[in-house]
């Protein structure tokens, strides 16, 4: 990406600093009044999200900033995307495919949604198949989506057994070695990872991104 002009740098800074109103006003002005390239504006958003991710990793930002950043990105995306001329640019190559869902019996989704968002803005193609996902649905979705990584989420202690059962079913289907499995959620730790047979666990969204990067060979 080439260097940024002053206005572009301002947008990245305001997004990264959570100055929502100023960022939205500037993005709207660039897109709707000044005819800025929508792909360039989205690229600037992605650059701002890199800063947000870094600040999260460094312990300066926490969940509220990830959530607000997600919302700012969505709002600007809603303005920018309809302005993209068909055939222009083309979708950027994705780093890998991640299928993610909350295991059966568990209805929690806040953590899963944040992980999906962080993977998405970090260049992964994410398919989120929701909450309380039956084993068979995971298998069907895997066969169709062919992910590099499968993320199993769960907040309740009952999720330990649901995860174990889901991973055992992957083994039985003969598909276990086709992808890596990461687990995460409220009570997940190394003991649960070993119990379920997952490849790794993560305690936050940045760890999930780093795991996926490591597995897909993507540079951090």
């Amino acid at each position: 990406m080439s260097g940024m002009n002053e206005q572009e740098a301002q947008l990245v800074e305001w997004l990264a600093d959570m100055r929502e109103e100023e960022a939205h006003e500037l993005a709207n002005r660039m897109l709707l009044e000044e005819g800025a390239d929508p792909l360039r504006v989205l690229e600037l958003c992605r650059m701002a999200m890199d800063v947000v991710g870094k600040r999260f990793e460094e312990g300066e930002y926490f969940l509220p900033e990830l959530v607000l950043a997600g919302e700012m990105l969505e709002t600007i995306g809603a303005v920018a995307k309809p302005l993209i001329v068909q055939g222009e640019g083309g979708a950027a190559a994705k780093l890998g495919r991640v299928l993610i869902g909350t295991v059966h019996g568990d209805l929690h989704d806040i953590g899963k949604n944040i992980v999906s968002f962080m993977l998405d803005i970090n260049g992964f193609e994410v398919k989120d198949i929701g909450i309380d996902v039956p084993v068979k649905t995971f298998i069907d979705e895997i066969n169709e989506f062919k992910p590099d990584v499968v993320g199993l989420s769960g907040f309740l202690t009952l999720a330990f057994d649901s995860m174990k059962e889901t991973i055992a079913a992957f083994e039985k289907e003969g598909m276990r070695d086709r992808f890596k499995i990461m687990i995460g959620g409220g009570q997940i730790d190394e003991t649960v990872r070993a119990y379920t047979g997952a490849d790794a666990f993560g305690v936050n969204a940045v760890e999930a991104v780093n795991l996926c990067r490591g597995w897909t060979g993507a540079a951090a």
Partner: peptide
């Protein structure tokens, strides 16, 4: 005592 210990230990 951790939930993972109590349930799987």
């Amino acid at each position: 005592l951790s939930p993972s210990l109590l349930t799987t230990g």
